[in-house]
């Protein structure tokens, strides 16, 4: 299963990076989300999959899956949530202010804003 997951990780990375390199803000934010998923899967795959039961003690199990990646991923999920929200609001505000979600246009727009303020 690990090999298949590794391939999926590659696919997720490809899609995420491609999205980040596009011009639209929303696509970029979505791209970061996909990247996060890719990293989570990568972390899981690294410590081997399904090597035991869920990491809960006292249930008559001796073998567990590695709990550390899970803790890391849990942290990552929550931070990712915060960052995604931040990105979203940033692009939302940028759109409100500059009236475009296109990265290239934003530059020329903000250059104009700067020019006017002088």
């Amino acid at each position: 299963m690990e090999v298949v997951v590794a391939v999926i990780v590659g696919i997720l990375f490809t899609a995420g990076i491609y999205l980040i390199l596009t011009q639209d803000l929303l696509r970029i934010v979505l791209g970061t989300s996909l990247l996060t998923h890719a990293v989570h899967l990568l972390l899981m795959a690294m410590s081997m999959l399904k090597t035991g039961a869920a990491p809960l003690l006292g249930r008559g199990k001796e073998q567990f899956v590695d709990p550390l990646p899970q803790a890391l991923i849990l942290t990552s999920i929550v931070i990712n949530f915060g960052i995604t929200a931040f990105f979203l609001v940033l692009s939302y505000r940028a759109y409100q202010k500059l009236d475009t979600t296109d990265m290239e246009r934003m530059r020329s727009e903000s250059a104009k804003h700067r020019g006017r303020r002088r």
Partner: peptide
Amino acid sequence: AVVGVTMTILLTI
């Protein structure tokens, strides 16, 4: 903290 943060974000937007 998590409740506060999430709700702040949601309500603000």
